[in-house]
């Protein structure tokens, strides 16, 4: 091999290396841009304040937590009434807030069935059946949810609309008041989302 050919070969090798380095840099850039996939998490919107749907929400939430999923429940609209504490009072309400407070269930103990309520008879019958079959009550399900670190977040705007005050809601560990962006940020990173 003469000297000229050797120089050409070196130049080719340098070019090849530079191209490889460029490709490598490009790949590194792409890898750095990859966002982590959705978490093993369930984000739920609890919109309904009906007894049957609340039972379904709490059973799914506690079941998911038992399966090792992180669970975040967003209580909004009629759902917020289920978080009222029957033993607590809040003063300083205007007329409309008082009306809402008076007409909506004061806590999960007053929720009614969405169907076959029959003036309360259907709800009483279902509660009787649940007791007979040893099914967990809403009270028990909330306790279990707290034990399993199910997070409860409450829609601040619904609270405001219905005239509910923070001090009249149940004591639940870590419960806080949020807006739609908080729900969406959680939902975006969750493998599962539900609206009930």
């Amino acid at each position: 091999m003469n000297a000229e050919a050797a120089v050409n070969l070196d130049a080719n090798q340098d070019q090849g290396m530079a191209a490889l380095q460029g490709q490598l840099d490009e790949i590194k850039k792409q890898v750095a841009g990859i966002k982590p996939g959705p978490e093993n998490k369930l984000s739920m919107v609890v919109f309904s304040g009906d007894l049957d749907k609340m039972l379904a929400s709490m059973i799914i939430a506690t079941g998911a937590a038992a399966m090792g999923m992180k669970v975040v429940m967003f209580f909004t609209f009629w759902g917020t009434a289920a978080l009222r504490d029957a033993k607590k009072q809040a003063g300083g309400k205007d007329f409309m807030s008082k009306m809402f407070g008076w007409m909506l269930p004061k806590g999960r103990g007053e929720l009614k069935l969405s169907q076959m309520n029959m003036g309360g008879m259907g709800t009483a019958m279902l509660k009787g059946l649940m007791k007979k079959k040893n099914a967990p009550t809403l009270d028990q399900l909330f306790d279990i949810a707290a034990q399993l670190n199910v997070e409860i977040k409450v829609c601040e705007m619904s609270m405001d609309l219905m005239g509910f005050k923070h001090e009249e809601l149940i004591d639940y560990p870590g419960m806080d008041y949020v807006g739609v962006a908080t729900f969406l940020a959680h939902a975006k990173n969750s493998a599962n989302q539900l609206f009930i």
Partner: peptide, 11 residues
């Protein structure tokens, strides 16, 4: 009944 068996199991 459901969901207690898996809840108890997880605990």
């Amino acid at each position: 009944p459901c969901p207690m068996p898996v809840v108890k199991m997880s605990q």
